[in-house]
Design a protein around this nucleic acid. Structure first.
Lengths: 124, 124
DNA sequence: TCGACATATCGAAACTTTCCGATATATCCA
DNA sequence: TGGATATATCGGAAAGTTTCGATATGTCGA
């Protein structure tokens, strides 16, 4: 149950934005670090950082810090608001949300094992 | 199924606004004419008119013209998008969405038979 | 300590939205 | 037709949002 109107409005504002919704769609697929999100969605890193700030404020995403990387993911279903659950259901099956180019490219971007710098550094 | 990201963003924008969400909450209760909405929510009639324009664009409300009155209601459940259905479920039980004053007053506003000018004119 | 790299914050121009009084349009009834 | 009333649209000032390069902060390994 939502406890007040203003918070619901803030949640809705957080996702009524193309980039933020695309980020949410990507995170519906799995956990990524910030630089992967920027790479897949082809937007400046600062834009991703600001988008994530809003999504965090609204309680839609979680962060896990690991060394110099920040891994982001959607809040677990058990803790997600009904709004978030509904959005994820609508947005997750839309590869078009990921890229503004062709659908084919978007699917490719999703299917690829997006290289995270962290993975290259494991054995240092 | 949503057919594109941009339309979903437009839908979300339409409701990420305090007045528009309050209008939706009121319409979850039933059908009202525009001037009743303005009266209950205590906002200028032009503001209600613009709010309804947005909600209509997003497919959230329907209008029924009857003489000089326009009666508005939420789109029937059978045609409502999943987003609208979810929103109505969250927003309908919130009397606080109706007025910014006290909850008591809000409930009162809801409970009262809000006088519509149309009803006073029936027998002419 | 340094250089490299991941991320956050700042700054400021461009753009969009919000708000509401004034005014236009539409409908009714006499 | 004219006056009353319901609704829509306009105008435009104020406030808010978006965007992204530049820069700051933090973390690592050497």
């Amino acid at each position: 149950m939502v406890d007040n109107l203003r918070f619901l409005v803030e949640q809705l504002k957080a996702v009524s934005h193309p980039l933020r919704l695309r980020v949410l769609a990507l995170l519906a697929v799995g956990e990524y670090c910030v630089c992967q999100v920027a790479e897949v969605l082809q937007v400046p890193q600062s834009s991703v950082s600001e988008a994530l700030k809003e999504l965090r404020r609204a309680g839609f995403v979680r962060e896990r810090k690991e060394g110099r990387w920040v891994f982001v993911s959607t809040t677990p279903a058990s803790e997600a608001s009904p709004l978030l659950q509904g959005l994820l259901a609508e947005v997750a099956p839309l590869p078009e949300t990921l890229q503004d180019r062709t659908q084919a490219e978007a699917v490719k971007a999703l299917a690829l094992p997006i290289p995270c710098p962290a993975s290259k550094v494991q054995h240092g």
